[in-house]
C-alpha cells in the first residue's frame, strides 16, 4: 500500500514537474513572442518614422525649389525683360535721331543672356516641356531629345498602349515628380545600359499609373540597384528613391539576357 502511494506520489510529482516545465516553456515562449512582436512593431514604427521624415523633407525641398522657380519667373525675369525692352526702344529712338548707339545695344545683349540663364535655372526645376504640354507629351519629347543626342547610339520610342488621353489623376506636383523619376530612369538607361532599342510605354492609368521601360541593353535587378544606391556617392539614385517614397510608388527592375525591363508603378488614390 505504501509502495503504491509512493509510486502515485512520484508519478504526480513527475507530472507536476512536467506541467511546470511546460508551463514555464509556454510562458517563456509567449513572453518571447510578445517581445518579438513589440520589437517588430517598434522597428516598423521607426522605419515608418524615417519614411515620413524623408517624405516631409523631400516635399519641403520640392516645394522650396518650385517657390524659387516661381519667384525667379514672376519677379526677376519681368524686371529684366521690361528693362531690356525699354532700353531697346530708347536706343531705337536715339538712333532715329542719328546717334550711333550700336555699342550699347551689344551691351544690352548681356541682359538677354542673363534672362536666358535664369530661365535655364527655372526649367531645370520645372521643365518647360512639362509645364507647357503636360506629363505624357513631356516624356515623349524627352525621348525624342534622347534620340537626337549624338552620344546615344540607340533608338528609343514612346508608345501609349492605353486608350487614355485625358487629364491624369494626379496633382501637378505629383506629375512633376513622376516626370523627374522618368527622366532619371531615362538618363540612367542612356548612360549605362547601351541599349540598341528602348521602348517606353504607358501600360495602365486605372488603379495605378504604369510606365514600362523595355530594352535590349544591360539590365539590372532590384538587389543590384539597392547595392548601387548604398555604395554610390552620387545623388541620382538617392533622389530617385526619395521621389518614389513621395508617391508611394515603386520601380521594379528585371534583368534578362534578351529584354530587360523597368516598371514604374504609381498607385492612383481614389
Amino acid at each position: 500500500m505504501d509502495e503504491e502511494k509512493y509510486t502515485i506520489i512520484i508519478i504526480a510529482g513527475c507530472l507536476a514537474l512536467i506541467f511546470l516545465v511546460m508551463f514555464l516553456y509556454v510562458i517563456t515562449s509567449v513572453y518571447k513572442s510578445r517581445n518579438l512582436k513589440i520589437e517588430n512593431k517598434l522597428r516598423l514604427l521607426e522605419k515608418q518614422k524615417q519614411i515620413d521624415l524623408l517624405t516631409a523633407i523631400s516635399k519641403a525641398e520640392e516645394k522650396q525649389k518650385i517657390e524659387i522657380a516661381g519667384q525667379l519667373h514672376d519677379e526677376i525675369i519681368p524686371i529684366v525683360a521690361l528693362a531690356t525692352s525699354n532700353l531697346n526702344s530708347r536706343i531705337t529712338e536715339f538712333e532715329k535721331q542719328g546717334l550711333d548707339l550700336s555699342g550699347i545695344r551689344v551691351e544690352i545683349k548681356s541682359f538677354s543672356l542673363l534672362q536666358e540663364n535664369i530661365r535655364e535655372i527655372i526649367h531645370k526645376i520645372v521643365p518647360l516641356l512639362f509645364t507647357s504640354f503636360g506629363l505624357l507629351k513631356a516624356i515623349e519629347l524627352s525621348i525624342k531629345q534622347m534620340n537626337e543626342n549624338p552620344v546615344n547610339q540607340g533608338v528609343a520610342e514612346f508608345h501609349n498602349n492605353t486608350i487614355f488621353s485625358g487629364e491624369l489623376p494626379f496633382s501637378t506636383n505629383d506629375q512633376l515628380t513622376i516626370f523627374k523619376i522618368c527622366r532619371e530612369v531615362l538618363n540612367n538607361l542612356a548612360k549605362h545600359s547601351e541599349y540598341a532599342y528602348l521602348k517606353v510605354s504607358l501600360e495602365e492609368v486605372k488603379d495605378s499609373f504604369i510606365l514600362l521601360f523595355l530594352h535590349d541593353g544591360k539590365g539590372v535587378t532590384n538587389e543590384e540597384i539597392d547595392l548601387l544606391e548604398e555604395i554610390s556617392t552620387g545623388m541620382g539614385l538617392k533622389l530617385l528613391k526619395s521621389r518614389l517614397i513621395l508617391l508611394n510608388a515603386e520601380l521594379i527592375y528585371i534583368k534578362d539576357d534578351e529584354v530587360s525591363s523597368i516598371r514604374l508603378i504609381v498607385p492612383i488614390s481614389k
Binding site: I77, A81, S85, S89, T92, R119, L129, F133, K137
Partner: peptide, 28 residues
C-alpha cells in the same frame, strides 16, 4: 516666349500657333 527650343516650337505650331514673338522685343 523667351524660350526657343526646337521641340517646343514644333509642338506650338502643331497646336496651331501662327508666329513666335520673343519676349522683350521692340514694339516695332
Amino acid at each position: 516666349t523667351a524660350f526657343f527650343q526646337k521641340d517646343y516650337i514644333i509642338e506650338c505650331f502643331k497646336l496651331g500657333a501662327k508666329a513666335f514673338l520673343p519676349k522683350g522685343d521692340e514694339v516695332e
